[in-house]
Amino acid sequence: MSIEDRAKATAKDVEGKVQEAGGKLTGDREAQLKGKAKQAEADVRHSVEDVKGQAKRAID
Rank of each mutant, 00 (worst) to 15 (best):
K38L: 14
A31N: 01
R29A: 07
K36M: 10
V44A: 11
V44D: 08
V48W: 05
S47G: 15
K36A: 10
Q39V: 08
L25I: 10
L25R: 12
A37Y: 06
R45G: 09
R45L: 13
V44G: 01
R29N: 10
D50G: 12
K24Q: 15
E41W: 05
T26W: 05
E30K: 07
G23V: 02
K24G: 02
K36N: 09
L25K: 07
A42E: 05
D28L: 01
K36P: 09
S47H: 15
K34V: 08
A42F: 07
D50K: 13
R29W: 06
G27A: 01
E41L: 03
V51Q: 15
K34D: 01
K38Y: 14
A40I: 12
A21C: 03
L25P: 06
S47I: 15
E20H: 07
Q39S: 03
D50L: 13
L33I: 14
Q32M: 10
E49T: 09
G27V: 01
A21H: 07
G22T: 02
E41F: 06
K24H: 12
V48D: 03
L33G: 08
R29F: 07
H46Q: 09
L25Q: 10
E30F: 10
Q32L: 05
K36L: 10
G22F: 02
S47C: 14
K34A: 05
E49V: 11
K24V: 15
G35I: 12
L25M: 11
E30D: 15
E30H: 08
A21Y: 11
Q32S: 08
A37G: 13
D28G: 02
V48M: 03
Q19P: 06
K36C: 03
H46L: 09
Q39Y: 05
G22K: 06
G27M: 02
E41H: 00
D43L: 07
L33N: 11
R45Q: 13
A21M: 09
G27L: 00
G35Y: 04
A40R: 14
K36R: 09
Q39D: 01
D28I: 05
L33C: 11
E30I: 14
K24R: 14
V44F: 08
Q19W: 04
E30Y: 10
G22N: 09
G22R: 01
R29P: 04
L25W: 09
R45T: 08
D28K: 00
D50T: 15
D28Y: 04
K24F: 13
E30V: 14
A40M: 13
E41I: 11
D28N: 09
V44P: 01
E20P: 03
Q32P: 08
G27C: 00
G27R: 00
A21Q: 11
A40T: 14
